[in-house]
Computed example of a mutant assay.
Amino acid sequence: MNRRSPLGEFLMARRAQLSPDDVGLPRYGYRRRVPGLRREELAMLAEVSAGCYTRLEQGQSLNASAEVLDAIATALHLTTAEREHLHVLSTTTSHRTGPAAPPEEHASADLRTLLAAMGDVPALVVGRRNDVLAWERSRTRPARRTRGPRLARRPGHPAQPVPAGLPGRAHPRPPP
């Protein structure tokens, strides 16, 4: 992914136009791999970190402050028009809209047919964001109660509180 943003292209072009002699930096050796200033040299002149400048030039940083942009503009010896253009490029870069919302998910007709054919097997169809898209409909009815609740309704059953006015428990207490 080697696509550069318009801000990065502008910064790289202006950096290539300056030589170390133009800004008072010593030359180390005769041969330079890049035309103009290195990223680290420009970051040092602008008093920002080399990583911050690199991310800005590569289009990875979307939140450069006006002070950082002014420091970079001063280090690049930009004119007033170029400085304004740098700020315009930065605001258009930083106010990009995010990716479009993913389309709404639905269970297909084939999946619903499969769920209907499953009978009484509990089943859910879940989307990529864990949304329940479909479920097996027969499980939506309340389950038929079995003996447990009927036993609890019997008077004197240990699960039921003894109403006031009735003698104590119907069952004898276990010895201590």
Rank of each mutant, 00 (worst) to 15 (best):
T74W: 12
D110G: 14
S61F: 02
G8K: 02
T91M: 11
P155L: 13
G156W: 10
S49C: 05
L124N: 03
C52F: 15
V88N: 08
A43Q: 01
A134C: 02
H95V: 06
L62H: 13
R144Y: 04
M118N: 04
I72S: 01
L111T: 15
G24W: 10
S108D: 14
R173N: 05
H171P: 00
E57P: 00
A134D: 06
R27N: 04
E67K: 07
G156S: 12
R55S: 08
P176Q: 09
R83E: 05
V125S: 07
S61I: 00
L114I: 13
G24I: 07
Y28N: 13
R147H: 10
T79S: 15
P161C: 02
L18A: 03
L76F: 06
L89W: 02
A71W: 00
E67P: 00
T92N: 13
R83V: 01
L69E: 10
R15E: 00
T79D: 14
V34F: 09
L111V: 14
L166M: 12
A81C: 04
V34M: 09
R83W: 04
P35F: 03
A109M: 08
F10S: 07
V23H: 07
P155C: 06
N63F: 05
T140Q: 11
Y28G: 11
L133Q: 06
A159N: 08
R137M: 04
Y28T: 11
A66L: 08
H77W: 02
V68W: 04
Y30W: 06
Q58G: 01
V126D: 02
T140I: 05
L151D: 11
V132T: 10
A164C: 04
E136T: 12
R31V: 13
E84A: 15
A50Y: 01
Q160F: 01
V34G: 00
G148W: 10
T92C: 06
H157N: 15
S49P: 04
L89V: 06
A159K: 12
L151M: 13
P175M: 00
A64Y: 11
A81F: 09
G98F: 04
A73E: 03
Y53I: 09
E9S: 08
A109N: 05
A143S: 12
R27T: 11
E47F: 09
G148D: 08
P167G: 02
I72F: 07
Q60F: 10
M44P: 00
T146W: 09
R139I: 01
R173H: 07
L166F: 11
A159G: 07
R14S: 03
S19Y: 04
V23A: 08
P20E: 04
V88L: 10
G59H: 01
A164D: 14
L45N: 09
S65A: 08
S19D: 11
D120M: 12
S65D: 12
E47R: 15
L7D: 02
P175Y: 03
R129K: 11
Q60K: 15
R141E: 15
L151F: 10
L124W: 13
A46G: 12
R15N: 01
